[in-house]
Simulated scan of single mutants.
Amino acid sequence: MKKSLRRILALFAALFVALAAGMTAAQAATNFGNAPQGAHYAQGSSEPVCTLSGLTVTCTGTQIAGVGNTNATVTLAVTSTFTGVCHNPGVNSKIVEPFTESETTTTSSVITSTKNGRLVVPAQSATGTSTADFLADFTCPNPNWTPEVTGTAISFRYSLTFAGFTQPAILITG
């Protein structure tokens, strides 16, 4: 009895975390202290904006001036987190094992500065893993058990990091 109660509590905790992650608004921060001296958004440009539609995160492009000959790497990682249970087959179809699993899809590219010291950052897009794709590859600890996804959360991390710097100049999470 004690073991099954612990499993149920773990399942509820995982569901709470997934729900809380799904309700979090995107957080954006630009820190040109992590960029070449003089870096700034070009006139008419601003911090990228990331939006989530279904499983796809799309972030707008931008332009950064004053970067000299410094290149940057832009990365967008979309994480799909699945919570669920494994059922023991039979008349009662008992829940025997809760699970929480995450899969991350990442796109990354190096952006080369132009001869005028401008970095033109194109829009970025990445798609998370669907429940059907997750279940196609997931197996419960016992191959006779059947998995059931009871919750899904999508989160993302967009970053732009200049060559020679360890921290991103732009970081957006959601």
Rank of each mutant, 00 (worst) to 15 (best):
L135A: 00
W145A: 03
F156P: 11
N116R: 13
T152K: 09
G151T: 00
E148I: 03
A77D: 13
V149W: 08
A123F: 08
F82I: 01
P141Y: 09
P143L: 08
D137C: 08
S113V: 07
L160V: 03
T100L: 00
A126S: 10
G54D: 08
S155T: 15
A136V: 10
R118F: 09
P122N: 06
L160F: 03
T79N: 07
T75D: 04
Q63I: 02
P89N: 06
V78G: 05
A123C: 04
Y41V: 03
K115W: 11
T112R: 10
T51F: 05
D137W: 15
L160G: 01
W145N: 11
R118N: 07
V121T: 06
V74E: 05
L160D: 02
T83D: 08
T100F: 02
D133T: 05
H40P: 10
S102H: 06
S155P: 14
E101H: 09
F99D: 06
S80W: 14
T83P: 02
W145Q: 11
P122W: 09
G128F: 13
T60S: 05
T139S: 10
A136K: 15
P122R: 06
V78E: 06
G44I: 14
S113E: 14
F82G: 01
N92K: 15
P48W: 15
